[in-house]
Nucleic acid binder design. Sequence first.
DNA 1: ACATCTACCTGGAGGC
DNA 2: TGCCTCCAGGTAGATG
Length: 272
Amino acid sequence: MPELPEVETTRRGLMPHVTGHTIKQIIVRNAKLRWPIPTTLDMLAQQQTVQNLSRRGKYILVHLNAGTIIIHLGMSGSLRILDSSTPAGVHDHIDIVLQNNFCIRMRDPRRFGAVLWAEGDPFNHPLLVNLGVEPLTDDFSGDYLYALSRHRRSAIKSFIMDSHHVVGVGNIYANEALFHAGIHPELAAGKISRARYAKLAFAIRTTLEKAIIAGGSSLRDFVGSDGAAGYFQQQYFVYGRTDLTCHTCGQLIRHLRQNQRSTFYCASCQKK
DNA sequence: ACATCTACCTGGAGGC
DNA sequence: TGCCTCCAGGTAGATG
């Protein structure tokens, strides 16, 4: 599942093949993603040169002179660089074809992803304007989480997964970061001390950073071979490890549901 | 203002 | 073998 580390790894993988190249054409085979791909996208992007590729949360931004293509991979999306003559599979919904006849091809079996156009400053786009802080910047800290969480009754896991607070923390990394911080996922966000938030912010940051490093070394090349870019398999401490032993204390990892999402934790390492 | 729920979609796993 | 049900996931938008 593309969480922030996968999105960042994708961005870094695509960057050298795309920056400075000019878009020849955009081919939309299936516009029905989470929101319809704008019918004007081809017209808007044609002959535009890619200035830069950036990321905000889990959104990849393709910066052009006239505007920005905003891409979200949803939960099953992937991007690859392919020769545009490569036959498209059933779930290959859109190609951004470059003048050199390579293309960025988006595959998204579950179609939770999105490809949109932003005029002007893309950070003012409705999808981006209300996003919280980036977890890998200096703005993100234990003090930030502490201040934001006062008097909040929602569970800490829901709190850190809310992109209005901090972006890029999906279910996997929320579980993992809470384990590393020793915080029980059901604890009310407003009842957590400043000191524990410092540990949590550190855990979120380092868990994401380690995954980006692991992704950079293990992810197969973004260019060439057909098929979706394989997302890297991490060694998880709690995620998906129900009834397996905790690597730290040997107790069995427990499973519960919060907001229709699976939560995994070690009751001995993660205290209320 | 905040908290919780629903909807979107499809492939894969497990049960019968 | 085939059908059915459930689950996974991000997150905007609706609802409480």
